[in-house]
Design a protein around this nucleic acid. Structure first.
Lengths: 188, 188
DNA sequence: GCTAATCGGAGTATAATCCTCCGCTTACTG
DNA sequence: CAGTAAGCGGAGGATTATACTCCGATTAGC
């Protein structure tokens, strides 16, 4: 694959992630291409149909979130810290986009990302619970949904950076609800 | 005002609320009319432009939420109970729609609803805090935003009743985060 | 019954979005 | 540093969604 093609592909994915998070729904193809600073033809060459684009976006985001999450888990001193770090980094990596490909998740023909994500999240939750900081009735699903919710745009007209700050604030609140001890507000 | 006109007006408002909550954004006028079981002409007669419709929707929802909230506050035994009841009833009354009219809130020419809502929320938060159940660093804004977030659709394709159940579950988690003591999961 | 208010929805105008196509540009290769 | 195949951009036509009007049919209220 030629270098410029690779670069444009990544620009398109990043633009798509941004727009999905801003709009809270599927953005138009024209909008994605123009945000990526790329011709509309280029978008269609890389992603012939909507489905392939959405799938690529999901894998892109899942991938980098899982990688970052595994790293955070590895060098966290406690289950509570791992949980907190995971939730915040998931926001920063754009995990919120998966609300859009929800219907695709069921019959996903994609690789082991899904299993890997589930296993990571379960490990974190298990560890937090056996450390005694996380309430036993809280589930991995609660954690996942809390992150997705935090990523949804809150109010039309709010600039992206404010949205992001509010998302982190909200996740801290959820963290307190999911755990027994108040979490230290994180700085990112 | 003729009885059927009044009835249709209310149907339109209710349909608009439903759709806004389902879609998470502004629904089309055609969709609203058809959901309300009313001709498109009827919609335009009642609400000549988008702005007047959105404003009416907001007032409609604010009104019934405030009324219910004041009632709940009046017969709650504690600040904690008032807070919990308020958050859950706000979901049920559709307070989530206000994310859509956010840009209108600033220069709103509408009556005292806004002040009434603010005062109700502040009273509840004050009471919860002086009762010692709510963390002092949590704010009325946190409460409001938590409710709005809980009302946003979580995943495309999820049926409305599941969305609603998840919203209540989420609010319970936030409630635990905002308060010092775990809240009893409410049944509505 | 009468009538003025209200309704419904077919139908046109407008705008958004989709997608193709092809001449131009650029990264790689020898 | 040419040669060339891969890749790019975006004009523009097709398609679809949405906005809005208009008027004959209907109905509430007297």
């Amino acid at each position: 694959m030629r270098a410029d093609a690779q670069r444009n592909r990544e620009r398109l994915l990043d633009a798509a992630v941004e727009l999905i998070l801003e709009v809270g729904g599927e953005p138009s193809r024209d909008a994605i291409a123009s945000r990526a600073g790329v011709g509309i033809g280029t978008l269609y060459r890389h992603f012939p149909d909507q489905q392939s684009l959405l799938k690529a976006v999901a894998l892109h985001v899942l991938d980098r979130t899982i990688t970052a999450g595994e790293g955070a888990l590895a060098d966290s001193a406690s289950g509570g810290e791992a949980l907190r770090r995971y939730m915040h980094l998931a926001i920063d990596h754009g995990l919120g986009v998966i609300n859009i490909i929800y219907p695709l998740i069921e019959h996903a023909d994609w690789p082991d990302q899904r299993a890997r994500a589930a296993s990571l999240l379960l490990t974190i939750v298990d560890r937090a619970q056996s450390d005694g900081v996380m309430r036993p009735d809280a589930t991995a699903t609660d954690v996942g949904f809390a992150v997705i919710r935090a990523c949804r745009p809150l109010a039309v007209g709010l600039p992206p950076d404010e949205e992001r700050a509010l998302a982190h604030r909200h996740v801290d609140i959820c963290l307190d609800g999911l755990t027994d001890t108040p979490s230290t507000p994180s700085s990112g």
